[in-house]
Design a binder for these strands. Structure first.
Lengths: 355, 355
DNA sequence: ACTGAAACGGAAAACGTTTTCTGTCCGCCC
DNA sequence: GGGCGGACAGAAAACGTTTTCCGTTTCAGT
């Protein structure tokens, strides 16, 4: 069933059918009605491929994420989809799963399907990906990419705002030995979080020297807590580079019978869905996935609809959400409890990056 | 840049370019090489819309889910995507968010984009959805739909297999008062689970009379535990209709200082990712999302590639995965603790997996 | 009544492919 | 050496839309 079928039955030309469907005002209301009736009766829907072919616009946005199963992304995908239906777009979803081959295939698919724009929401982006897309003048929006490439919209995450809140929240609870479990070294976003932590600490006169590195997964968090726990001068609070890490420390704390938050305060980062469901519910720095998706989508929409190539910069601020994994600091005795030598500033525990 | 551009540069006709690209064997190797070279140099990718237009196949599969943020679905989407890239398909992802309007728009989008098939993986499906699609002879695959509609592939879930395992596992741990927290009444899948529970219980001579109903969300689980706890003859184990419910009872147990698994064994259903991360890790009945997605995708692929319209029935079996939320039953005193009647078999030392 | 403009519908070209159908060339067989 | 078939390349039609351009009708103004 095609537009000609409709034309025949409504006794008009295909041109008129097209105009009626697209609500072009120059068509006689009488005729339009006739067309609509037939369209409705037959349950006709225009062929989008054909339309795209002549219009040169597909009304498809590409969305590239790292991994759909990573709890950070479902909310993003959902929001993207919500906005897509609202605006009559489709979304072409692609995941890189950290595999160069997959990344390449991702951009190939985007180009083959002639998407109108693509949002690259994967953290730790290979720069190589963008080349091809940029060549073809496909509107792009990135998150957190380092260099300020012209012609590409950029969402900058304000890590400091939330991390500062977290640190000051802990400080207000009398914590002074605040540890940080960092993410993988190679991740740009992980680096930024670590720097934000250092800044927030020095800002209030605390030494940011209790840093161990994790892997942004539960295992990393578990190991990290073990490591911190061996320290002579153990922290009373730990801030994690992401929520999965925090969940790892929660888990290890449970095994080791360390009570959260009584014995140890922990705060996460990201505010994934899961954070609400941990025991106890996790206090964490929220980096709103909904907002992120919204900003990305609108950036694309803007660029496409207005045809402008100005490529703005956007900012996403982070902020602390309080739940129940933090509490007033408690004096924990130094570890091997040999002689609690009351030195003031003896930060003898070598910390920094293990592994 | 189109196929004609390539034709011009390679000094051949567009027909030859098309043949070369599609590896039609009748083209002279010499010429083919020439074409390939140009294609490569210009980074040309065929326009899929145009191709779809003439081929009558889009190489797009629709995937309708309930909600992307529901932890049950990301794994499905990811697997679907993996299979899509493998087979050179795209996926058109759509969510109903339990909204009739959205459902309608879902099928409209599928039809407009002329997908080659659609997998409807939402539980508790409006029958109305399928009408339009069936009219257009779009290959369909459903999960768990009731009536055996001809022309539609169907994945039937074997709930009993896993639930039987769960019940017998609990029975083996000396539990006799096993409760069930059901899902929402209107959900077909929830009903099936409840029936499976009853069957599994009666099978081994236990009365399935401890059933309360939840809502498949954490809140429902929390309420359910409260309710069960008020009972005179409290259960020592509870089986939940899904994992979120189980997480709810875990949470409420924590609040009420009921130790899991020592005081109460709990097992979930679904085996969502999250189940590994609870405290303690949740023993649950696995309904493999990967397998489900794989079966669905292959069903579609089959129907499309072979053109057959036989519409098979597939089965997905469920099975118990042991983690650490179950243990030997312990004698809990009847609720108001009148007189702890002298017991014969008091297994007060819970053993098994606790550690 | 006649002209001109305004209003509106239709024919046809265009979008970028695939594929059928038609040639052309070549080599082989008789 | 002439005819014939096989191998291969190109011209053109087709896919289902939108839109430009043109033609027809209608109506107002004189």
């Amino acid at each position: 069933m095609d537009i000609r079928e409709i034309a025949r039955r409504a006794r008009v030309s295909t041109a008129t059918v097209s105009r009626a469907i697209n609500r072009v005002p120059t068509v006689d209301p009488q005729l339009a009605k006739r067309v609509w009736k037939v369209v409705d009766e037959l349950g006709y829907y225009p062929n989008t491929q054909a339309r795209a072919l002549v219009l040169g616009r597909t009304r498809i946005f590409g969305l590239i994420v790292s991994e759909i199963t990573n709890p950070f992304f479902p909310e993003i995908v959902q929001t993207f989809e919500d906005l897509a239906v609202e605006n009559n777009y489709e979304i072409l979803l692609t995941s890189t799963v950290h595999d160069p081959k997959r990344m390449e295939s991702s951009v190939r698919r985007m180009i083959e399907r002639r998407v109108d724009g693509v949002a690259i929401l994967t953290f730790g982006m290979e720069e190589s990906l963008i080349e091809h897309l940029r060549d073809r003048k496909v509107p792009l929006v990135f998150v957190d990419v380092g260099p300020n490439v012209p012609g590409i919209a950029n969402i900058r995450i304000n890590y400091l705002s939330g991390i500062r809140q977290a640190v000051q929240h802990l400080a207000a609870l009398r914590h002074t030995r605040i540890a940080f479990v960092a993410g993988p070294q190679h991740l740009k976003s992980a680096g930024a979080r670590r720097e934000a932590f250092k800044a927030a600490m020095t800002e209030i006169g605390l030494e940011p020297d209790l840093i161990v590195v994790g892997d942004h997964r539960m295992e990393g968090g578990m190991k990290a807590l073990l490591e911190l726990n061996r320290l002579r001068d153990r922290p009373t609070a730990v801030l994690c580079s992401n929520d999965m890490t925090a969940i790892g420390v929660l888990r290890e704390a449970y095994e080791k019978d360390i009570k959260i938050p009584d014995d140890l305060s922990v705060v996460g980062f990201d505010d994934i869905h899961l954070a609400e469901f941990t025991i106890p519910p996790l206090t964490t720095v929220q980096m709103s996935q909904r907002d992120l998706a919204r900003i990305a989508f609108n950036a694309l929409l803007n660029e496409v609809e207005s045809g402008s190539h100005e490529s703005l910069n956007y900012e996403l601020v982070t902020s602390l959400v309080l739940r129940r994994s933090t509490a007033l600091a408690v004096e924990r005795p130094p570890n091997p409890a040999p002689k609690a030598a009351g030195e003031t500033k003896s930060r003898k525990s070598p910390v920094s990056d293990s592994r």
